[in-house]
Design a protein around this nucleic acid. Structure first.
Lengths: 215, 215
DNA sequence: CCGCGATGATCGAGTTCCGCTCCGTCTCCA
DNA sequence: TGGAGACGGAGCGGAACTCGATCATCGCGG
């Protein structure tokens, strides 16, 4: 067995990693490698990322990269998993920390947090939730589905939103759609085209609005 | 100059191709190469496609692949351009050939045609309109924008939809969103999850419905 | 508190595989 | 039958990935 520490080491990233870090410096290495990958991606795109670039930028050797990741694709997947974790955290904290009057307002705050991540989370605009990478067979539930479930949970706790069998798929559809529109908004306009971004809240209202009245 | 034939050789694919085919067998080769690429993509995904695989499957040599395409990315881009052409054609013909009573019904027919392409157009589920490839600088307007413009045009001709400055972006947003949801619907379910697909028409009604009343 | 073995972590030269070129050969057409 | 179009495939360069030697850290017995 590995990692019997109380701290629940970063959720699903583990599955993509070869050797769980044991010593402290090792965890720092992993972070440095992912940071380096994010920087490279922001500069030249993930298609052109090479493992040598990642190694050099992290001040490590190629061997070290392959100590942590089975292959180049796994580096990208790990980064997108970390990004998904971080952005999910930002969205959830916006949803229940802010002073939102109702569930719809909270959800719109979450959308704003998602859009902001395109600007401020390194590599996010390219990789997003990783579901864009067409790796086969892609086991496990997609990051979108996890995010949808957690948003619903947060809204239920704070605003008493009722359960409904169609809500999870509706919420995931809204997230997928808004994420795609945001990607389009940032594709040609580094600041994010407001004309596209404006349709995000509209979609969420249409798809999940009917479920968000308090229980 | 190249290709002075009356037939307007496949729209924008040309720009990605090294040598326009002159002899008849050569055009067949090009088709075979793209068909082979589509088959490979459906099997192992475009990330893992190699030029050698394309050559072998098309019964050609590597040299022949590079006679037609400058590099591997161009193969993917050509295929997505061909797919975009074909699917755009299908959507437009559904919009104005069928017996739709109004613009909204016609648009929903177009959406159905798009969804159908995920099932029946080889390689489309992975590459779609090519905007998923993160090649830098990505010049030219995205295929989504072109499709949006042509749909608007078709609706205007048949149903007298009025011009509106916000309609192109709204239409493109709807297409991007529906395309993303369809991709999600087919990602885990080869037949396309109906629960996700059902949200397509809903989104189009929300985003462009207000513009679709006759002039 | 100090060795000191065991295990984790790192390095980088070497191997393999893939993208792509080059040029000799073959095919088509006038 | 000459010339241009089309094709094949060995070979080159570079990127992905391996592997065994070397260094760092930890735990433990003295």
């Amino acid at each position: 067995m590995i990692g019997t520490q109380p701290a629940p080491s970063r959720s699903e990233i583990a599955g993509l990693i070869r050797n769980e870090p044991v010593q402290a410096r090792s965890a720092a290495r992993l972070t440095a490698l992912l940071d380096a990958a994010a920087a490279v991606i922001d500069e030249i795109g993930y298609e052109r990322l090479t493992t040598a670039m990642v190694a050099e930028r992290a001040g490590a050797s190629i061997g070290t990269v392959y100590r942590y990741f089975p292959d180049r694709i796994a580096v990208l997947q790990s980064l997108s998993a970390r990004n998904a974790d971080r952005v999910t955290g930002r969205i959830l904290s916006d949803i229940d920390d802010e002073r939102h009057g109702d569930a719809m307002a909270a959800l719109h705050g979450g959308i704003a947090a998602l859009v902001d991540a395109f600007r401020s989370e390194p590599g996010f605009a390219s990789l997003r939730f990783g579901d864009v990478l067409d790796l086969r067979p892609a086991e496990g539930s997609p990051a979108y589905a996890v995010l949808a479930e957690r948003i619903i949970e947060a809204l239920r706790e704070r605003f008493g939103v009722a359960e409904h069998k169609d809500l999870p798929v509706a919420m995931e559809s809204a997230i997928v759609a808004i994420d795609a529109i945001a990607a389009r908004a940032f594709a040609r306009d580094a600041g994010g085209s407001a004309a596209f971004l404006g349709h995000g809240p509209e979609i969420s209202a249409q798809l999940v609005g009917e479920y968000l009245s308090a229980r």
